[in-house]
Nucleic acid binder design. Sequence first.
DNA 1: ATCATGTAGTTGTCTATACAACTATCTCTA
DNA 2: TAGAGATAGTTGTATAGACAACTACATGAT
Lengths: 162, 162
Amino acid sequence: MTPGADQQSRFNAWHAFLVAHAALEPILNRELEAACGLPLRWFDVLTQLHMTAHQRLSMTELANAVLLSKSGLTRLVDRIEEAGLVQRVSAPGDRRSLLIVLTPSGQKMLKRAAPIHENGIRHHFGAYIRDNEAAAVEAALGRVAAAARQDVSLEADATDSA
Amino acid sequence: MTPGADQQSRFNAWHAFLVAHAALEPILNRELEAACGLPLRWFDVLTQLHMTAHQRLSMTELANAVLLSKSGLTRLVDRIEEAGLVQRVSAPGDRRSLLIVLTPSGQKMLKRAAPIHENGIRHHFGAYIRDNEAAAVEAALGRVAAAARQDVSLEADATDSA
DNA sequence: ATCATGTAGTTGTCTATACAACTATCTCTA
DNA sequence: TAGAGATAGTTGTATAGACAACTACATGAT
């Protein structure tokens, strides 16, 4: 196995990665929206809230969790709150901060949507990963994601201080 | 290794996949734009044209290649043509169709941008994939991408005929 | 205690994209 | 060869998100 060949397989992987994302994201979005009327991004927000200990996150924490800009999140939460799935509540001890909490209706929606979405992921993504590849894909993408997230944060810090 | 554990690693892989894309795409876009003033999508268009035998594709072919809607591509090509990197030329034998061709300036830009972008991919993506993982990641993502692309096409056909 | 600086979130504005409707052209069938 | 239907691309319009500027609040140094 030559070094050149290894580089090539990484580039092929990168290209497949891009195509897979570009094609998969709309597919899963439509499936979820058709089944529950829930856009994928909303699901992501509800999930992040659900995964948190007290089911509440500040706008800043949530923006970081779903990798959206501050303003993008403000508008996104506007829409989700308008639909009654989450609520902004004031944070104890800091009057600048808002905690986003799942409403009962949001929890119900999440319960309904989760199996549908998981099914979509299995069907369109998991099904094409063989048993002997799963661990490698998990580990490699995990490292890429962790590093990229870090780089994004650094970039944001640099911009802030500029 | 239980079947349940396998499913979990696929879901972890999916999550990492999403995070990696959300974080990486803006990073590579900024790097390329800072170095060459070239948005990533423009690079994608120029690359697709370059990879083609006669360096020309119709709007429809190009939209399919870069996974963009027809109208999205019309506007994208508007901007790239305005910048002088490509040109619309009429297709011989079909007066509805337009061929998009790389201009000399577009070719020069592509030559300048390609090594920078490849470097970014190596640095932010390839570097985190170990030698013994590369083949699995390549194969698995390749299958996912191929299947997803197929599904998108089928979906588009269904919509058209509706 | 005050003021300077930092942080949380929102708002103004711009851009990129999607979908649907449209025009122009092509193709196939009778 | 006329007309129906399919196809290529563009345009009207709506939406999601980014960045920068802003307001309100908090913190920390003196």
